[in-house]
Design a protein around this nucleic acid. Structure first.
Lengths: 208, 208
DNA sequence: CGGTTTGCAATGCGACCGCATGGCAAAAGG
DNA sequence: CCTTTTGCCATGCGGTCGCATTGCAAACCG
């Protein structure tokens, strides 16, 4: 077995080139030649690692999904969140992080979602969360309500659904510059407050 | 002035072809030749009415925005909404209408939004609402709260913002088949109930 | 009737696309 | 040494793209 290279590293380079090209000029700029140039390799190498353009874009999307999830987990850890409410807030706020890397991922995800119109496998990031995620989040909401002493309701799952949809939407807006990170954070916090029953009567303090 | 034709009708035909092509195969299928074929005219005619491909897609987006707004107004009228709450619900629910025409527009809008990554003029429909819309909606929310006898808060504008973001997101999901119209309607109604303070303690009836 | 203006249709051009193919350099085994 | 396997580069092909150009028929004015 001669000439052993790190395949994973090669693919990461190529996918990163796809992200960069998409963010800079839209997904229609992602061509074999441009990807090769951006990654500083030859067209041949791109073809060597991906059997087709579609396969490359698909892998780029796969990795984007995993990267977003990793960012969320990282954000939860970084926040040192111990209470369910803190975990909930950290998870949702991770989607609107003004961090360059996060914004890159959101922008690429939006471009990919545009393709979902014709290719159902292309939504993933911006589509509704799956059962597992919603159940987990609903659990957080219920636990947070309990801790706050708020009367419980059976609609936690729906609130989880709404919360992810809103956070995703805000994340796209931030990544495209339609909202400032601060404004998006205020909106998201306001919604979480409402979900957790924090908003009683004109109270302003709520949470940081 | 010889050979007078209806320019507006021509453009409508062409834009409709753009919508159809985008919905069927993604915005990357929108080419001069395909648009001409879809509209049943020659490439020359397309070029006669639009100086470039970009101009055509831009007009298609313009008209989509106007069509969505028209659909909303139509929905309000059709519902015979008289109270602020009924108007509010009609407006928001118009975005998740499972009507073929509405879903076409949402799908095209999503494809266009995918281009917003590289072309800022391409968001429009799926971007946050403008000041005027938010103020109007906030007014509806406040009035609806008053009618319900709910204690007033000063956050109506933010709730309006969130409501539009959620309705838009749900509308995309419905148009792409990620949610059934009924499921989306339940989610949206639940959110509006929450905004209007309908959800007190485990109550189930709320609204239809 | 001829002239002018409008509304297109047809065709051609250069650029770029994804992908297939063929070959060659480097590393390891014999 | 030679062979084999791996990783990759270079090039060529058929197709499609947006757009410019050219020409001409229909409709109105005089």
């Amino acid at each position: 077995m001669p000439k052993i290279v790190d395949h994973e590293e090669r693919r990461r380079r190529l996918v990163d080139a796809v992200w960069a090209l998409t963010v800079r000029g839209g997904i229609e700029q992602v061509t074999l030649r441009k990807v090769a140039e951006q990654a500083g390799v030859s067209m041949g190498q791109v073809q060597h690692y991906y059997s087709s353009m579609q396969a490359l874009v698909r892998d780029a999307l796969d990795r984007a999904v995993r990267a977003v999830n990793a960012n969320i987990e990282k954000a939860v850890e970084a926040a040192g969140a111990t209470t369910p409410e803190a975990v909930l807030r950290a998870c949702l706020h991770a989607l609107i992080s003004p961090d360059q890397e996060s914004m890159r991922l959101m922008r690429f995800s939006l471009a990919a979602a545009g393709r979902a119109v014709s290719d159902p496998t292309m939504a993933r990031v911006l589509a509704p969360g799956d059962d597992e995620l919603l159940s987990f989040t609903a659990g957080l909401i219920t636990a947070a309500r309990q801790e706050r002493g708020v009367e419980l309701r059976e609609d936690a799952r729906m609130d989880a659904d709404i919360s992810w949809a809103l956070a995703t939407s805000l994340g796209v807006d931030v990544a495209l510059g339609y909202r400032s990170p601060e404004a998006a954070a205020r909106v998201l916090s306001h919604h979480i407050d409402q979900v957790l029953g924090v908003l009683g009567s004109g109270g302003r303090e709520a949470t940081a």
